[in-house]
């Protein structure tokens, strides 16, 4: 009798920011999740500043945000995988990602780390990734954007 694969995770929350990392993250997660049928939740957070109520109708931004999730959904389908797209309006992206992971009892959180091409090029660590690393209730994978000239799958 063949051994069943030991699942790395059963429920993963994937944070997408609409950047070039997104496709790489989706591919990585969907392919890893497929053998164990792990649940994949893809979230995209629209940050609402304090000048507006949290439930403000930001239609123009929602449209582009929805597009981020649509692209992720299509990428997952292309790999014969499935993900649940979730659009969130929040005051702070990092806190919203962590909250979602807590709420869904995720055992893995995946975030992207963009590469800044201007100013000599560097990884823009920003506030979100450190916040997630510090506060996530589960394992965190940080997927960096490929550096220029890097050979990647």
């Amino acid at each position: 009798m063949a051994d069943k694969p030991i699942p790395l995770f059963s429920r993963v929350v994937v944070a997408l920011n609409g950047g070039p990392c997104d496709e790489r993250i989706v591919r990585l997660v969907v392919e890893t999740a497929r053998p164990t049928k792990a649940e994949v939740v893809a979230i995209h957070v629209v940050e609402i500043d304090w000048t507006l109520p949290l439930d403000a109708n930001v239609a123009d931004r929602s449209e582009s945000a929805q597009r981020v999730l649509d692209i992720a959904d299509a990428a997952a389908e292309h790999l014969h995988g499935k993900l649940e797209p979730v659009l969130i309006q929040a005051r702070d992206v990092g806190a919203a990602i962590v909250d979602e992971a807590v709420e869904r009892a995720a055992d893995l959180l995946v975030v992207g780390l963009p590469y800044r091409k201007r100013f000599g090029g560097d990884f823009a660590i920003g506030r979100t990734v450190p916040y997630v690393l510090k506060n996530a209730p589960c394992a965190v994978w940080v997927v960096r954007e490929p550096m220029p000239g890097e050979i990647h799958a």
């Binding site: 500043d49 304090w50 000048t51 507006l52 005051r91």
Partner: peptide, 20 residues
């Protein structure tokens, strides 16, 4: 207490505006 803190000087009008 969570992400309800704006690290700006409330004596500045632009900062008050940013805080809503």
């Amino acid at each position: 207490i969570g992400s309800i803190v704006v690290a700006k000087d409330g004596c500045e009008g632009s900062a008050l505006a940013d805080a809503g």
